[in-house]
Computed example of a mutant assay.
Amino acid sequence: MTQTKDQPLEPGTPQRTRTYTWQDPLIGAGAVPGLSGLEYLRGMARGEFPPPPIGQTLGFTIGSEDDVQEGKVTFRMRPEEFHYNPIGSVHGGVYATLLDSALGCAIQTMLPAGVAYTTLDLAVKYLRPLRLGMGEVCAVAEVVSVSRQVATANAQIIDDAGKVYATATTTCLVMRPAQAPRSTQEKYP
């Protein structure tokens, strides 16, 4: 049998489709400069700002405002068939994206208004497969340290029983606004 792109692999196998929507991510990004990271993420959890489209694409979210604490953020996701790789479990990139999102947001909760961050390094250890039907899992991320230019955090993906499926660490670059140059009189008294 010759398979075309739109045909199922075996006759009688139903096609699967998925449709989702998202909001303009720049709406929330426009509010970021005037809010601390903690205020912004709590506002997102309350529905005041749209969630990032990547969360809607992969089906993960901050469940409630309680999932956003200073230095700690929890994302929730239910493994689904559309997350699968060719060997029948959730693709490692889904783990990495979920963990990277939780880690970055945990760091963001520690940053004042006008300060941004970006991931420099992400290290993920895959311990167990995530599979369809296992229920919701959480990526729980906690900040280790935030300095003027660098922040670090660690995270785990866990199930309701506390079983660990993956761990991760990150280092993020902290980007603070440039300071105004000092006048000549301030430099040389």
Score class of each variant (00 low, 15 high):
P79H: 07
A29Y: 05
Q23Y: 01
L127S: 04
E48K: 09
T167N: 14
A116V: 03
V73E: 01
E136G: 01
G12K: 04
G92C: 07
G133R: 11
G47R: 02
R18Y: 10
Y95K: 13
P79F: 12
Y188N: 15
P50W: 00
F60R: 00
R42C: 03
L38D: 05
D67Q: 03
G133C: 10
P189K: 13
G12L: 13
G47M: 03
S36E: 06
M134H: 08
V90M: 11
S147M: 02
D24M: 13
E65G: 09
A116E: 10
A155M: 12
P129E: 07
Y84C: 09
K125W: 01
L120F: 12
M110T: 14
C172D: 10
L173R: 11
T167M: 11
Q3G: 03
L122Q: 09
G55D: 07
P53Y: 07
S145R: 14
T17G: 11
M134Y: 01
S145F: 02
V144F: 00
V73G: 06
S101L: 04
R18G: 03
T2S: 14
K125N: 15
R131C: 07
A113T: 00
G88M: 05
S36Q: 11
T2V: 11
M175H: 01
L38R: 06
G104H: 07
T109P: 03
A106T: 05
L41Q: 06
H91C: 07
L132Q: 13
G37Y: 01
I107P: 04
T61W: 13
P86C: 06
A180Y: 00
P25S: 06
G55V: 12
A151S: 12
P86K: 02
T170L: 03
R131Q: 10
T61N: 00
P25L: 02
P33K: 06
P79A: 08
Y126P: 10
Q156K: 15
S147H: 05
R176E: 13
P112W: 07
E65R: 04
Y40K: 04
G63R: 12
Q179E: 15
V143Y: 07
G93V: 13
E48N: 11
Q15K: 14
H91P: 09
M44C: 12
Q149E: 11
D159S: 08
T109G: 07
G30F: 08
